[in-house]
Each structure stands twice: as structure tokens, then as C-alpha cells.
Design a protein around this nucleic acid. Structure first.
Lengths: 130, 130
DNA sequence: CGGGATCCGACAAGATACTG
DNA sequence: CAGTATCTTGTCGGATCCCG
């Protein structure tokens, strides 16, 4: 197989941009929130139930960050039982597309990675790479 | 209310896969290493010089993880001055493609995010979202 | 040159309790 | 219901020393 990646001019500056969004979506819960909101508009509690493992502290923090980055829109309804809706913005939806690409890659090559790990883990001590 | 979700059937299981690779490339240096090796095969010291900010501890740890996941191949040359070469595997190159997609998104929408942040930061205290 | 081991600081993140 | 504040812990990551 030959390399068809051919990154055009991906210098340090561009890679820095990649780190930017990875800092944004690379944390433990952003992806989960984006994915959950990609399906539908949800309330705080609904999000908490959907994502399961998340604490209300991290959910709040994650939502705040995503809102600040313009990826999630927060709507407060001034009703007697407080109600706050969260939904993806258009920008957030484009990011969701990227996330789906990520998922596609993970599903496609996740098996290979698993095998590689097993093989690496099975190596005695020093691998005769040369 | 109806769901206008465009993603086909992205359930929790798939999202979990996305988290897997984000755990892998989401750390501080993996992207930088993958990007550096995407251009050419490099030695340890060369990698250290290319990535600049990285310490040898993190470079070693990052390389080890990437090697274990089958993304990077490590070649030891038994010569008098020790020489170790690192290069991307075919699997690593496909991941580089994903990374490039990420970079593309970052470059394309990074400006919008910046504006959103500025707007969010300029808000008084409670935004009349509803 | 390449890398392992250890110590230590900084921050992310979980659990809990409290508020409006 | 939708958060906020505090405490504690776990992990990441840098600095340093040492080895082959």
C-alpha cells in the first residue's frame, strides 16, 4: 500500500489549529454532549441521564465551554419549575460531522488497534524491529 | 416534536469508539508526533527538535502509546551510537488523514469560534436567550 | 544518543452539600 | 429542575538523575 495522505502544507501553524479543537472536543465529555444534542434538543437532566457517567459538575462545565465556543445554544425558559434547553448551533452541527468521521474511523480501524495492542502486549521484552 | 437528526444511527456504542480514539490522540502530544512522522521518518532527537516544547519523558511515553496502538513503528539500529527510527504505519497514516480533516475544520471554523467566544465573553451576566 | 525511574506541581474531574 | 461551591482525588506532564 502506498501513502495517499499527501498533506498539502500542514506546517506547525495548522497543527496548532488541530490542537485547538482537540483541546475543545478532546476532553472527557464534550463529544458525548455534542453527540447527545445532535440527536435532539435536550434539557439539563435529560442530558445527564443520556450521558450517564457524567456528574452535574462536569455537565455544567462542558455545556458552558461548548456554549462559549458557539457550538451549543442555551435557552432558559422563565417558568415555575426551571427549564433550560440545550441544542447544537449550526457550527456545532458541522463539528458533529467531524465527530462522526472520527467515529467512522474508530469503528473501521478499532479492531486493528486492538490487535496491535494485543501483539505489543505479547512481546517478550525487546522487539526485534530491525 | 420531531427529530431531524441527520446522523444515521449513532448510538452510545459508536460514540464510545469515538472516545477511544480521542483518548488516544486527544492528549497533548500525539497529534504533534503523528503530524511530524507524517512528513518523514525521524529519530528520537529529531522528533524532539521538531516538536520543540515536548520533554523526552512525554515524547517517550507518547511514542510508546502510539507504537502499542500500531500507529507508529519503532526501528532500533544496533550501531555504536544508538539509533532509533520512528515512522507511521499504514494505520497511522489513515489516522493522519482524520487529523487533517480535523485541521481543515479548525481552519475553516476557527474564526467563528473565536467570534463566539468574544461575544460570550462580552455578555453582561445573564443572556436573554429565550 | 535514546530512554527508564523517580519526585513533584498543576489541573481535571468525581462526590457531596447547598441554593433559587 | 438547574445549577453553584467546596473538598478530595487521580492523572498529566515537567524536571531531574541515572543507565546502556
Amino acid at each position: 500500500m502506498e501513502v495517499t495522505v499527501q498533506l498539502p502544507e500542514v506546517d506547525t501553524a495548522r497543527m496548532c489549529h488541530a490542537r485547538q479543537i482537540l483541546d475543545r472536543v478532546g476532553d472527557k465529555w464534550s463529544i458525548a454532549v455534542i453527540h447527545a444534542l445532535g440527536a435532539d434538543t435536550l434539557r439539563f437532566t435529560e442530558l445527564k441521564r443520556t450521558i450517564h457517567g457524567i456528574s452535574q459538575r462536569m455537565l455544567t462545565a462542558t455545556l458552558r465551554t461548548l456554549e462559549r465556543d458557539g457550538l451549543v445554544r442555551r435557552t432558559v425558559h422563565p417558568v415555575v419549575p426551571p427549564r433550560v434547553d440545550y441544542e447544537l448551533t449550526e457550527l456545532g452541527m458541522t463539528l458533529l460531522g467531524i465527530v462522526c468521521s472520527l467515529m467512522g474511523w474508530a469503528v473501521e480501524h478499532g479492531d486493528a488497534i486492538d490487535e496491535a495492542r494485543a501483539a505489543y502486549d505479547a512481546r517478550p521484552a525487546g522487539s526485534p524491529t530491525g
